[in-house]
């Protein structure tokens, strides 16, 4: 019973939504949006679940004085502080009523502006460093395939900058097809297009196949059983 009911719900909802795709007439036309909104409502309640789990897990770490418990303390304090500032709209110019949580000048806005924003940008900026270290390690001409990969990487890297144009600017118009920006564009637009489309076709079919397996009930491993 514990598995039969979820499987039945999955099958019915899945089948109805697939059929609704081909029926534009009410009430089928709005089903997809309605279910999407239902999911959002559930996901919103799940925030409470997530927040509860966060407090419980880090609370345990603090009470047991586990290694790194101080970070757990920072997490809980940060979580509660932002929650409090957001719920009470502290510092909002228009007071508690009639103003947005993120109103300019509010404490919540300050948290966003001076903590969240720089932290997010910093984490994203790490990518530049990791791309460099991964490139240094991965782009080695070990064999023919790796050499082609290396060559293509070179052309794209140079083609994405002004240097690429500068390096081959001396080539006459008749040899324009050899300039780095031209090659970079062709690699992206022709080879990359083709490769990406092939991968996307495979992915699309994989999604259809997996969805059918889940709807029909062939694949039940997400419920914890085969």
């Amino acid at each position: 019973m514990k598995r039969t009911i979820p499987l039945a719900i999955t099958a019915i909802v899945g089948a109805v939504l697939v059929i609704a795709y081909f029926i534009p007439h009410p009430p089928f036309d709005g089903l997809r949006e309605d279910f999407s909104i239902f999911f959002d409502i559930m996901a919103t309640f799940a925030f409470i679940l997530g927040g509860g789990n966060l407090i419980k897990m880090h609370g345990n770490r603090i009470s047991r004085r586990e290694e790194g418990w101080f970070f757990s303390l920072v997490t809980i304090v940060g979580f509660l502080l932002v929650l409090l500032v957001g719920l009470t709209k502290f510092g909002n110019p228009d007071g508690f009523r009639g103003s947005s949580v993120t109103a300019s000048g509010s404490y919540f806005d300050h948290v966003y502006e001076y903590i969240f924003r720089p932290c997010g940008a910093t984490m994203f900026a790490l990518l530049a460093f990791y791309v460099a270290s991964a490139s240094f390690r991965a782009f080695r001409a070990r064999n023919a395939e790796a050499s082609i990969l290396l060559l293509v990487a070179f052309i794209i890297l140079l083609g994405r900058t002004f240097v690429g144009a500068l390096l081959t600017s001396w080539l006459p118009d008749s040899l324009r097809f050899l300039t780095i920006p031209y090659l970079a564009e062709k690699i992206m637009v022709v080879l990359n297009f083709a490769g990406n489309r092939a991968i996307m076709i495979g992915i699309a079919l994989g999604i259809v196949s997996t969805s059918l397996k889940v709807i029909i009930g062939i694949d039940r491993s997400y419920l914890g059983s085969d």
């Binding site: 991968i199 996307m200 495979g202 992915i203 079919l205 994989g206 999604i207 196949s209 997996t210 059918l212 397996k213 062939i218 694949d219 491993s221 085969d226």
Partner: peptide
């Protein structure tokens, strides 16, 4: 890569039903 992710469950289970879907 891509579709292999979706085929993985069938591959790992080895079940006829799931392999058929691949």
């Amino acid at each position: 890569i891509g579709e292999e992710l979706f085929a993985a469950s069938a591959y790992l289970s080895g079940e006829p039903k799931q392999l058929g879907s691949i």
